[in-house]
Design a protein around this nucleic acid. Sequence first.
RNA 1: GGGAGCUUAGCUCAGCUGGUAGAGCGUCUGCCUUACAAGCAGAGGGUCAUAGGUUCGAGUCCUAUAGCUCCCACCA
Length: 800
Amino acid sequence: MLDKKYDYKEKEPKWQNKWESDNIYKFQHNSGKPSYTIDTPPPTISGKLHIGHVFSYTHIEVIARYKRMCGYNVFFPLGFDDNGLPTARYVEKKYKIKADRMDRNEFIDKCLQETAAMEPEFHNLYKSLGFSCDLKNNYSSIDKNSQKISQQSFIELYNKGEIYRKQSATLWCPECKTAIALSEMESEELESKMNYIYFKVKETGKNLEVMTTRPELLCACVCVFVNPKDDRFNGLVGKTAISPYYNKEVPIMANEDVLMDKGTGVVMCCTFGDEADMQWQKTYNLPVLEAILPNGTMSELAGEFAGLKVKEAREKIIEKLKELKLCYKQEDTVHIVSTHERCGHEIEILSKPQWFIKLLDHQQEIYDMGNKVNWYPITMKKRFLNWVEGLKWDWCISRQNPFGVSFPLWYCKNCGKVHWADISELPVNPLHSTPDVACECGCTEWVPETDVMDTWATSSLTPEICMNLETGKGLDGGHLPMDLRPNAHDNIRVWDFYTIAKSLLHFNTLPWKNVMVSGFVVDEKGDKISKSKGNAKETPTELIANRSADITRYWACNMSLGKDAVFNYEEFNSGAKLVQKIWNASKFVFMFMEDALKTQPKLLPMDKWIIECLKQTQQNFKSLMNKYEMGLAIKEVEKLFWNFCDNYIEIAKNRLYKPEIYGIEAKQSAQYASLFVLKEILKLFACYMPHITEEIYMNGLAEENEKSIHLTEYNFIEGEVDEKLILGGEEVVEVVSAIRGEKSKNNVSLKNAVESLIIKGYSDFVKENEKDIMAVGNVLNIEYQNADEKSVDVRLAKEE
RNA sequence: GGGAGCUUAGCUCAGCUGGUAGAGCGUCUGCCUUACAAGCAGAGGGUCAUAGGUUCGAGUCCUAUAGCUCCCACCA
């Protein structure tokens, strides 16, 4: 029997502990069931979990439960992404330390301690939300297995000719002092100045006006460009310009990309001010001059400005140019600069040796693979393809950052030749060991690679890392594709993209068949909820404590897949109402459970009707869930549930309470139907609200040997829906509603008797349910008339 | 500039292959009804962004336009 009130504070932890101790979500290796594998996103360990995590992780969790109840053996592991820059920066901030000003090993230990300390917090939150992931089956992207798989991937791709090391233009963050990848860039509007300065044309001695926002790069100017169609500069191309202050001679060249109406129509090209400069450097094979050092200060090239930070140098050189009357005008402007997503610092382009994975050679294949993946919702596919089309760089995977997966290699001190670790030795940290062989050149001294890999070089292998938990086979493509990759839309061009690329390069197969893309949680203004914006009113832990896990989950599912959802506290009320109602309705049905027949008796029409409604809902539910549209799917269940409560139970009530009037068979029919439908409704709700459904199920509905509602399977009723039966039942509801309306209009109680009821134009189905209608409406006399249009005349009895 | 999405009731959103506008919340009016007053019943509320087009018929399909959001490009 059920308690009078449902106390989530007691019940939710009770079931969470039980599920954990019974190990009910363990992936059953040899269960004989088909398996369903999920490539769960490992959250980045760089701060507390926020409501956005709860949102998208709940979506994954609901699908996991759904698939389990569909009869799949669900592989739902758990991971943590704790290697690399995000974690390093988090640790630096938290302890106010700087990685480059302390011992490398000490810093790494600090990072490892921090991540180890945070993982239990994540576990607890997952547990308190009732997640059905296998908490014991987890990985971290810095653990030995992940490192091994990641390093092996690197070596194998090198052997396949897909990796190269090259001194080349690199996106560089002077703040983090590391190379970054295109996907880590953001752009930001910054105020700046357009500076108009004078070059000189050597041959004519005339001034050549040039506009630049980056005068500090003047020292690295290698040429100036004009548009060949620009009449103003007829005859200049081929001549020589002399830069102001530095007095360096550079060629005047023509290029059609130069915008004639921007600035003065003359562009100075430096290596490397921006990506256009880089492109020009490549096209015209211009010399590479390094104006900016990795730490963001000016190089020797800058002369008296050497050692200054870029921004200081910019101001100083303009002062100088003004002094020399070589800068004749300044205008304010707002321009968009590329910044590093992790620190917001402006990105520079430097020339440094880095390791790259070839992507541009495989652009079309990556595109084709993305095209083969099922994206949910389908519009997300375009985002992916759009990103692949815009690819301009190979993937720079080296990072000059202490915390991450090491490159498994050393360089010969003498000749620079690379010595690779043997795959059997992995994982290795080249800083901690040295090869005991000599180089071909005879040298025996080896210099370790100090760079580490981009976090995505490892995260892009999560299908292999996940499956390794089960198979132990390491970097192995035999299990691919997995069934599902779930993530939010910001990860399409990052995690999804890199994973597809790696899967292509290693195994030439899809990493997974389906991608489910969630939206973000935003506030009323449409801004992403985040701690830094201060628009998150409650932490996930507080929400769960104040509103319960089931209600929080319900809120998270109340969305359209892929769309951003507004966080509105009031929306939690609908969930609270639903949970309460499920409890009360179950209490009612349970009152008549004791002497219910186990096998199906002969059913009355309205009992058949509600079962037919269930069948229809189940079918809609299934087809929506198979498209991962859990928000629309639960709406279907809710619709059925409220119909069950407001209409069916009200009608069945009289038969249940008063068998002496309506007959024992009428009671048994209602007992059977109400129990059957309630049980199936609870199963449909179970993946959303696992606690309350479990509490009810295990308190009366479970068979003797059943351990949990979550280990049951849906009892989907097959066959076509009997539309006639559905419509017939709806006609009965319509008649009942007319009676209620009349009473409401006359401000009388629903108990008030109806003196006479005249039903016109309705089908015979209504007549078949005469007893139910009379009972629920307290109707004394009933009459039927044929008519072309349906109507119901209600004459109320006088109030007593 | 390229790509995607959105615009439907006061608010948050559903509306699949075109057939007489839907839900929840909020508002209003009633009702203590042997599960539930944190409840129940009922009511009001919309030129479906705008303009054209296809069609017997258009939130739904097509073409423009406007506004908002996101991604990419724009950094001289």
